[in-house]
Nucleic acid binder design. Structure first.
Lengths: 181, 181
DNA sequence: CAGGACATGTAACAGGTTACATGATTAT
DNA sequence: ATAATCATGTAACCTGTTACATGTCCTG
């Protein structure tokens, strides 16, 4: 019920093809609402049928044709309607937490190595976010409207990754000192 | 592919019925791996068929009969096998972030109110976690093994909620001062 | 007497994943 | 030559959600 709306937000910012949307989801909005290209194609068709978006076939030389989608008036009002509704709280599905909880039922050292691996991945993601922040929002005090909202979402990503890294460090430290005591 | 393993972890800690598992998921492990009772019943049957768990029918007076499940040897080795595997990074699906990103395309004030509502819900959840921490782990320095791991998972929950609250405050402050400038 | 907890389940549907298919261009 | 990028799609499958069904006991 919300992939449609995530796509409406993204397409309102800029029109694009299914493929382009899938790239955007990989790089930005998908950190908060992940989606594969198959999901996106399926939902785009449904939205097109419902009249929330329209498409234009664009021929390209050397590359396959693409369908560039843009948001219709109906899509805009549907988005406005959805924005005024309450949303469910964020859903987190963290296999690493499940593993840590069961660590003593298997190879504890392997779970610790897995925590270290995740720490490295999240450190990379944090650097990505900080790069975007420096490049796109160098003066956050001056922002308002859409740009401010985009910046604030990014800040959420930065905070979440910082928090995750801090947790990994706490886990790594506690598990290391446990095994040597 | 991991609800099975979350259930194995929970059932190893303590045997129980599908209903009891569903309650546990609501209160603890489900904060990191949510599941409804229907999902749990379906997966329990599959695990029973696969021989990872066994059940005993327990008659109760005044209450319906229940099937108490416990983990078999095969289940234990499956869990150990899974624990040594890499896990995918945590998946976050946050409709509030999508709304904030699109806020300027609708009623910005309504989105702000929604952020305030989520802040309150997460404050409650944080208090729940802190209550468990005080009750079950009053002296965290002394912990090791399974208890240490349970404590560390809870710490992850506390950190995540603290981080979320901090983000909400940042958003609320930025959006309020924007609308008055 | 209404509502909630206890206990398990079926059925239908919506959402998400994985594998495969096609075919051109560009970079290594 | 090989792989990667661009671009769209089908099919099969698994996971997750919502609604409904049943029946007892306990509490307000």
């Amino acid at each position: 019920m919300a992939l449609e709306h995530a796509i409406l937000v993204s397409l309102t910012e800029r029109a694009g093809s299914g493929y382009e949307l899938a790239r955007r989801f990989d790089r930005s909005i998908g950190f908060f609402w992940p989606a594969t290209h198959q999901q996106i194609y399926r939902v785009l068709r449904r939205m097109d049928d419902a009249g929330w978006i329209t498409h234009t076939d664009v021929a390209q030389d050397g590359r396959p044709d693409k369908k560039v989608y843009e948001v219709s008036e109906d899509g805009r009002s549907e988005l406005a309607r959805w924005l005024a509704e309450p949303v469910d709280p964020a859903i987190l599905r963290d296999g690493l937490a499940v593993k840590l909880r069961g660590a003593s039922l298997g190879d504890t050292a392997a779970v610790l190595r897995e925590v270290e691996r995740h720490r490295a991945e999240h450190a990379t993601r944090l650097e990505t976010y900080r790069g975007i922040q420096r490049r796109d929002f160098p003066k956050p005090d001056k922002l308002n409207g859409r740009e401010l909202h985009q910046y604030l979402v990014l800040r959420g990503g930065v905070r979440a990754e910082e928090s995750f890294l801090g947790w990994c460090d706490e886990v790594i430290q506690a598990m290391r000192s446990e095994s040597t005591s």
